[in-house]
Write a protein that binds this DNA or RNA. Structure first.
Length: 450
DNA sequence: TTAGGGTTAG
C-alpha cells in the first residue's frame, strides 16, 4: 500500500525511499518485494546494498547474501561495518568457516574489529563454524563484554561439547554480579544433557523463578528440555503446562520428551493436540515423531507421518528423517523393506542412514548383512561413532566407553564386574552370543572380535 | 535509510 503510494508520488528513483522500502519489506518477511525494489532502483548506495544483504540473511538466504556481496564489490561499492555484520551472520548460518575468515580479514583491513557488535558477530561465526579456539581468542582479549557477547560464548561452549566450560563461565558471571538476562539463561540451559548434573539445573530453575523469567518462551523451553534430559518427565510436563505462550519449539520439546522416555503413544497424542492448537509442525517435530513410532513399533503410523511431511506440510524430508524410517523398519524386523527404502532414496545415503541399517542388522543377528553394510560404509568414507555410557553419583558424572580403563578406580570397577559375572553364571546365566561383535578381516571374512 | 545473541532431534 505504502509502496503503491510511493510509486504514484513519483519518488521511485529516490535512493532513500528505495532503501526504506527494502528494509520494511525485509522486516515483514516479504523479501520478494524488497528484491523487486532493489532491482528497479536506478541509483544505489552502500545503505541499499547493506539493506538488501541484511534482508536476505534475516530471511535465511545466506548463500544469496554472500553472492550479492561479491556483486557489490564488482560494482566498486565500499562495504562498512554494518555490511560485515550481516555477512558474518550469513557465514554463521552456513557454517562457512573459510568465508568467515575472509570477512574477518576484511574487517581487520577496515579497522572496525574492536567494535563490540563486530566482535560478538565474529565470535558467533567462529563458534557456529566449530572453531571455538578462534572465538575464545576474541572473547579473552576483548576490552569489554556485554550481554550479547556473553550469550554468544555460552552457546558456543554448549554447541561445541564444552559443557563444563560453559557452566564455569556462567557461574563466574553470576558471582561477579553481572545482570543475567533471559538470553543467557536459555543459552546455559542448552548445555544440559544426560551427563549433566540435575542439581545445577535446579539451581538455574531457582534463578529463573527469582528473576521472573518463567514467562519467557525460550527460557521455559530450555527448562523443559533440561528436565526431560537429566531430570524427570513429570517436571518437564509441569513447565510445559504452565507456559503462558507455547511456540512450535515448546511442542517439539514436549513431544521429544515423551518419545525420549519411551511413551510414543503420548507423543503422537501431543502432536495431534499441537495441530488442533493451530501450531504448524516443523522438520524437528517429525524427527521426534518418527523416533517415537520406531520405539513403539508403530510402523504404519510412522510411514504415514513421513509421507505427510511433503504431501500435507510442505516439508522436504532430510537425511535424518530417512534414517529414522530405516531405523523404524529395521526394529520391526522389516529388513528387506528397510533396504528397499535405502535403495530408492533420491540422494546418496549418509552416515546416519547406514548407522540405522547397521543397528537393524545387529538387533536381528544378521551379521552377514551388518558386515556388508560396514563394508559399504567404509567404501563411502564414513566412520562409525563410539558409544558412550555414564552414571551420576553424588553430583559427579562418570562417563565411559567400551574397554575403558581411564577411570581412577578402574581396577576395583572391573573386579566388581568380574564378581558380578561369576555370580550370574552361578545363578544359571547364559550370555547372549548374538551380540558379540564381528569384523571383516583382510579377506573380507567375518571374524569374532577378541 | 543499513547492524551482533537465546530454546527443539540425533
Amino acid at each position: 500500500m505504502v509502496h503503491a503510494l510511493v510509486i504514484l508520488s513519483g519518488y521511485r528513483g529516490e535512493v532513500t525511499v528505495g532503501n526504506a522500502l527494502i528494509t520494511s519489506y525485509s522486516k515483514c518477511g516479504c523479501f520478494g518485494f524488497a528484491k523487486k525494489v532493489f532491482d528497479e532502483m536506478v541509483a544505489r548506495n552502500i545503505v541499499t546494498w547493506t539493506a538488501v544483504i541484511s534482508g536476505l540473511v534475516q530471511n535465511g538466504f545466506y548463500d544469496y547474501g554472500l553472492k550479492l556481496f561479491t556483486k557489490m564489490r564488482d560494482e566498486f561499492v565500499d562495504p562498512n561495518s554494518l555490511t560485515y555484520l550481516s555477512l558474518l551472520s550469513a557465514c554463521s548460518g552456513l557454517q562457512a568457516l573459510r568465508d568467515g575468515k575472509q570477512i574477518h580479514g576484511l574487517v581487520l583491513k577496515l579497522g572496525c574489529h574492536s567494535d563490540m557488535c563486530i566482535e560478538s558477530a565474529l565470535m558467533d561465526m567462529y563458534s557456529k563454524c566449530g572453531s571455538m579456539e578462534d572465538a575464545l581468542q576474541i572473547f579473552y582479549s576483548a576490552d569489554k563484554l556485554d550481554d550479547v557477547s556473553m550469550t554468544v560464548i555460552l552457546v558456543g561452549f554448549a554447541q561445541n561439547g564444552l559443557e563444563e566450560e560453559a557452566i564455569q563461565v556462567f557461574v563466574k558471571m553470576v558471582k561477579s554480579g553481572i545482570d543475567i538476562d533471559p538470553n543467557m539463561v536459555s543459552a546455559i540451559l542448552g548445555v544440559f544433557g544426560a551427563d549433566t548434573s540435575m542439581a545445577f539445573g535446579q539451581q538455574i530453575h531457582s534463578l529463573v523463578i527469582k528473576k521472573r523469567f518463567g514467562a519467557n518462551t525460550y527460557v521455559s523451553n530450555g527448562l523443559m528440555n533440561m528436565y526431560s534430559k537429566c531430570g524427570t518427565l513429570e517436571d518437564s510436563t509441569k513447565v510445559f503446562q504452565r507456559m503462558p505462550q507455547k511456540n512450535s519449539v515448546s511442542w517439539n520439546s514436549i513431544i521429544a520428551a515423551f518419545a525420549r522416555h519411551g511413551d510414543g503413544l503420548k507423543a503422537i497424542e501431543l502432536y495431534e493436540e499441537m495441530l488442533s492448537d493451530g501450531i504448524e509442525p516443523t522438520d524437528v517435530t517429525f524427527l521426534s515423531l518418527l523416533h517415537a513410532c520406531s520405539h513403539v513399533g508403530l510402523v504404519d503410523k510412522g510411514v504415514e507421518f513421513f509421507e505427510s511431511m511433503s504431501k500435507v506440510h510442505q516439508i522436504n524430508p532430510r537425511m535424518e528423517h530417512c534414517a529414522c524410517v530405516v531405523d523404524m523398519l529395521g526394529r520391526a524386523r522389516l529388513l528387506s523393506e528397510a533396504k528397499d527404502f535405502v535403495d530408492k532414496l533420491p540422494v546418496k545415503p549418509g552416515i546416519l542412514v547406514w548407522q540405522a541399517l547397521l543397528g537393524a542388522c545387529a538387533i536381528h543377528g544378521k551379521w552377514r548383512d551388518r558386515a556388508m553394510a560396514i563394508k559399504r560404509m567404509k567404501e563411502a568414507g564414513l566412520a562409525k561413532e563410539t558409544g558412550i555410557s555414564w552414571i551420576e553419583i553424588e553430583k559427579n558424572v562418570h562417563s565411559f566407553v567400551v574397554c575403558d580403563r581411564m577411570h581412577p578406580q578402574a581396577d576395583s570397577i572391573y573386579s566388581v564386574l568380574a564378581q558380578m559375572f561369576l555370580q550370574l553364571v552361578d545363578e544359571g546365566y547364559q550370555p547372549d552370543k548374538r551380540f558379540i561383535l564381528y569384523y571383516l578381516d583382510q579377506d573380507e571374512e567375518m571374524v569374532a572380535s577378541p
